[in-house]
Design a protein around this nucleic acid. Structure first.
Length: 972
RNA sequence: GGGCGUUUAGCUCAGUUGGUUAGAGCGCUACCCUUACAAGGUAGAAGUCACUGGUUCGAGUCCAGUAACGCCCACCA
């Protein structure tokens, strides 16, 4: 069978993924006896978004757990899905429609806009699913969920109704973060603060009936139309006497009171006087509540000033600002203007400045649910990995601020509330009285009923004839449906087998930035709906940063498409590199480069070129488009894609595995059994094979340890350890030593050959199983080749059993001798190099072991030693006495001499030996000092003392040999 | 302002309950296309473990403080 000398991911990835899918391997299947079901919910990405490397690491780590548990034999479910992402999606579609057709959502109307967004979803919603498949994610695609689909919608309505019945849902006027562009409120979490250079305007408010005036400062002068008081500190001697009097607002000549408020006013700041605008500032709002002040709204929903602003009514508040300042100045009420740098909240979605705005909103009462969610973590029912992330979760929940859930959008779950006027309660009772799915409550303030129902397409107006019935226009915050994800996707509230099997989920794997937005809310709703935790573990992984240390994100422009990496390096390379990066301490910097489509030159992405539409290649000077290019014509020049050298390690490792396997398979045949570690062990015990040689004992022992360590690493979410252990085992132990060591046996035709083939096949197939969760495509490809060559029945590695160690291959003494052999080879090679003996040139070595046991071991290993050392001659002589000066290296129980034809520079050799002597003498000194210290021997554990003693003995042996060598060189 | 984290080789990062003569990959130097692999092999150079103090027989590892950087939360008119 011909196997290519390089692994080609493109050739096999699609084919293998199709094979997995068509075999039904992604669907949960009956678990083996003694195993528990295992389930992970994929954090649902925004349906119209594109995944970047942050998602790639997230999904790689999930897939590793899923594949590992599948191999353990668990009934395994990875639930995939996407999120409708209310604001983000609607904003994108609205913008697109406006650009193409010049129409706003109000021109289109609700029904049409929602229809358009669904179309958009159908058109672009496939991209992330493609990306996930390209990455090799083994999710249960047959049960793909979407937060707006009927299953999730039912869960949303049911939850809302239960909360309504429990009195946890209320409607109230609140100051919300108003996005004037999208004309919706956004939650605190969706507001980002940006530093803005502005002014601080000092205004003069004349005290009524007095010559005195108060000086107040503001960054938003237009809000003075909404002022309903001026606050001073009640203990402030400067102003105490004015409390209770009024000041006259300039231009509008409205009198407002001077009040004392110790909470709002910081005496040290500015003038110590604060204008109070309850309807447009969060702190002022609270102050207004405390002092029962009027709330005057100055804005229209679109951000223009309303009639309160008199001559400025109808103007955008930002455009009106300079005019208002001018008017104030002309009226003599502007005292001064000073430059001021301030933090202004911006909408994360539309990037426009947020206006605090008073409006009617729906809220969920958090107190009890937050308490329960905190208890779930405090009691250990939910564990964070690493544990420190529990703190940010608990801190956020402890604030227990009510959750504003209404959004003035059209894309989302419409709030299942109907306002009913003109009927009495008897009418409601007679229409809906015996229905569990309907509840109502009186809203005295508006002389109406609030009717809530979980019934799909509920049409109360059809029953309540003659009444004034109107459904709430607002939709629910996206996080409301995401919060239900762990149970809604499993079909809750309907009783079903899937829910019973997989709920609670085992682990949630996510990034830390949504611990409060999402994780906390899932725990709360899970408790409310199911009286259970949604999952037992929360694994928080590293954040991917760009080369400048900034978080990778789509909007920043530094996001790298996983498919770009896969295109260049392959999915397994991406996955391996991601896994290896995934330690739990540091975030991972991934320096990003552009790749020129014309000449393949790589050049770094930086602040300057990050958002450029086109770039010119620093090498060939040709133009290329970036993915920011607005015009398709620009892209015809060629599209630069983003890449990062970080993934070369994965590709190189993949190629190494490929070639090691290729070599192995070239040396196996259809008589070679594919045994597990335990099967091999028992076959050996039954005498079915020749006894193991030292290298075989060593590699099997190492493999056993690797199985143990790697299993623990995955179980405990130490992914980078998993990657590194596999890397070391495959590259440094399996390839560099073992494969080299067994080459002669494989080329021979002796009795031993079949045994060595069996060992090789066992090690290879075990390693493939261990690697599979991390590098599924390549291992699957090699697996199928391996089965063909050894004549095994065809099967998929994805469903193979996870290895378990066997143990008892050889004792520690034997292992130490093998390691000594490798050490001697390294030392010998070092000498070759030091004396400029070329790679092809044969050299002569003499080994001088201390013991007869070592002598006989090394005799037995003569062939390997000679080959690894490219030796033409090798003597093992316990009683050897060096004839004249010879280069030498020592270990504690064997010395290795290099025989040279020409003369040796005795002085140079002596200097080398003396340098080593010095080093080792210093080392011995520190060890002796340590061991001679009574406190050490008294305090340190016995184990450590023994280890130090062994080190000392070994160092002394080594020094002894160096001294002999030195003495000999002096005589020469 | 509050919280969390980071600082180890030129770069990106490991370093498990303190027991290290401090590791890896990339990059660098020298030699090698040797019949699995040049996406490779062999040998090598390279670090005052941010700084200061403390605890300890012993500190990269624990404690306190300082500095720089990053993230989250809150936000002063």
């Amino acid at each position: 069978m011909e196997i290519a000398p390089q692994y080609n991911p493109k050739e096999c990835e699609k084919r293998i993924y199709a094979a997995w899918e068509s075999s039904g391997s992604f669907s949960p299947r009956e678990g083996k006896p003694g195993t528990e079901p295992y389930c992970i919910m994929m954090p649902p990405p925004n349906v119209t978004g594109a995944l970047h490397l942050g998602h790639a690491i997230n999904n790689t780590l999930q897939d590793i757990q899923i594949r590992y548990h599948r191999m353990l034999g668990c009934k395994t479910l990875w639930q995939p899905g996407t999120d409708h992402a209310g604001i983000a999606t609607q904003a994108v579609v609205e913008k697109n429609i406006f650009e193409k057709e010049g129409k706003t959502r109000h021109d289109l109307g609700r029904e049409e806009l929602v229809k358009r967004i669904w179309q958009w979803k159908e058109q672009y919603g496939g991209r992330i699913l493609r990306q996930l498949r390209a990455m090799g994610c083994s999710c249960d695609w047959d049960n793909l969920r979407f937060t707006l689909d009927p299953v999730c919608a039912k869960a949303v309505r049911t939850t809302f109704l239960s909360m309504f019945k429990a009195g946890l849902i209320y409607r109230g006027k609140r100051l919300v973060n108003w996005d004037v562009k999208l004309q919706t409120s956004v939650s605190d979490d969706e507001v980002v603060y940006e530093t803005v250079k502005s002014n601080l305007w000092h205004l003069k408010y004349q005290v009524e009936g007095s010559e005195e005036y108060l000086e107040v400062a503001t960054t938003r002068p237009e809000t003075f139309f909404g002022d309903t008081a001026v606050a001073v500190h009640p203990e402030d001697e400067r102003y105490k006497h004015l409390i209770g009097k009024n000041v006259i607002l300039p231009l509008v000549n409205r009198a407002i009171p001077i009040i004392g408020d110790a909470l709002l006013v910081d005496r040290e700041f500015g003038t110590g006087c604060v204008k109070v605008t309850p309807a447009h500032d969060p702190n002022d709002y609270l102050c207004g509540k405390r002092n029962k002040l009027a709330e005057i709204n100055i804005l229209n929903p679109d951000g223009t000033l309303n009639e309160v602003a008199g001559q400025f009514a109808g103007m955008d508040r930002l455009k009106a600002r300079p005019l208002i300042v001018k008017a104030l100045e002309e009226s003599g009420c502007l005292l001064k203007t000073e430059p001021y740098t301030t933090q202004v909240g911006h909408s994360d979605r539309s990037k426009t400045p947020i206006e605090p705005y008073l409006s009617d909103q729906w809220f969920v009462v958090m107190a009890d649910m937050a308490e329960a969610a905190m208890a779930a973590v405090k009691s250990g029912k939910i564990q964070f990995h690493p544990p420190r992330f529990a703190k940010s979760y608990l801190d956020w929940l402890s604030e227990k601020r009510d959750w504003p859930i209404s959004r003035q959008l059209w894309w989302g779950h419409r709030i299942p509330i109907w306002y009913v006027k003109g009927v009495d309660e008897d009418a409601l009772k007679s229409c809906f009285g015996n229905c569990d799915e309907i509840a109502w409550r009186r809203d005295e303030d508006h002389d109406q009923w609030l009717l809530c129902s979980s019934i799909e397409n509920f049409k109360p107006e059809e029953k309540l004839l003659g009444a004034d019935v109107r459904q709430e226009e607002d939709v629910l915050d996206t996080w409301f449906s995401s919060a239900l994800w762990p149970h809604s996707t499993l079909g809750w509230p309907d009783k079903n087998e899937r829910f019973e099997t997989f709920y609670p989920n085992n682990v949630l794997i996510t990034n830390r930035d949504i611990i409060s937005l999402w994780v906390a809310r899932m725990v709360m709703t899970a408790h409310f709906n199911t009286h259970s935790v949604p999952f037992h573990n929360v694994m928080i992984h590293v954040t991917i940063l760009d080369g400048m240390g900034k978080r990778m994100s789509k909007s920043k422009g530094n996001g790298v498409d996983p498919e770009d990496i896969i295109d260049q390096y392959g999915a397994d390379a991406l996955r391996f590199s991601m896994t290896q990066m995934s330690s739990d301490t540091q975030d991972m910097r991934v320096p990003v480069q552009y790749r020129c489509p014309h000449c393949a030159t790589l050049f770094p992405q930086n602040e300057k070129n990050m958002k450029a539409e086109t770039l010119s290649c620093p090498s060939c000077k040709k133009t290329m488009a970036t993915r920011w290019a607005a015009e398709e014509t620009q892209k015809k020049e060629g599209l630069a894609f983003l890449t990062s050298a970080k993934f070369e390690i994965g590709r190189n490792f993949g190629n190494k595995i490929w070639n090691a396997s290729r070599f192995a398979m070239q040396n196996l045949d259809d008589k070679t059994p594919l045994l597990s570690l335990k099967e091999l062990k028992s076959a050996l015990e039954q005498g079915n094979f020749e006894p193991l040689n030292a290298d075989e004992e060593w590699i099997l022992t190492r493999l056993d340890e690797t199985v143990r360590e790697v299993t623990a690493s995955i179980e405990e979410y130490r992914y980078h350890e998993y990657a590194n252990k596999m890397y070391d085992f495959m590259w440094n132990e399996f390839c560099d030593w073992f494969l080299e060591a067994i080459k002669p046996v494989l080329r021979s035709e002796g009795k031993k050959k079949a045994s060595t083939q069996a060992v090789l096949a066992c090690v290879l197939q075990t390693a493939l199983r261990l690697l599979h969760p991390m590098m599924p495509f390549e291992t699957e490809e090699i697996w199928s080749n391996l089965l063909k060559i050894t004549g095994g029945e065809s099967s998929l590695l994805i469903n193979a059993e996870w290895p378990s160690p066997s143990g008892g291959w050889c004792d520690a003494r034997r292992l130490a001798m093998v390691m000594r052999k490798y050490e001697l080879i390294s030392l010998g090679r070092s000498m070759r190099s030091a004396f400029n003996i070329g790679p092809g040139q044969k050299a002569s070595f003499i080994l001088k072991p201390e013991s007869a046991e070592m002598q006989s071991f090394l005799e037995g290993e003569r062939e390997t030693l000679m080959r690894f050392l490219t030796a033409g001659e090798l003597t093992v002589d316990k009683d050897m006495v060096p004839s004249g000066a010879m280069p030498c290296q020592v270990t504690s129980d064997v010395a290795i001499y290099l025989k040279l034809d020409g003369s040796v520079d005795i002085a140079a050799e002596k200097a080398k030996v003396e340098k080593q002597q010095k080093e080792i003498a210093a080392y011995i000194q520190t060890l002796e000092k340590k061991l001679g210290n009574e406190s050490f021997t008294a305090h340190a554990p016995q184990e450590v003392i023994e280890k130090e003693k062994a080190k000392l003995a070994e160092a002394k042996d080594k020094l002894q040999k160096l001294s002999e060598l030195s003495a000999m060189l002096s005589k020469a």
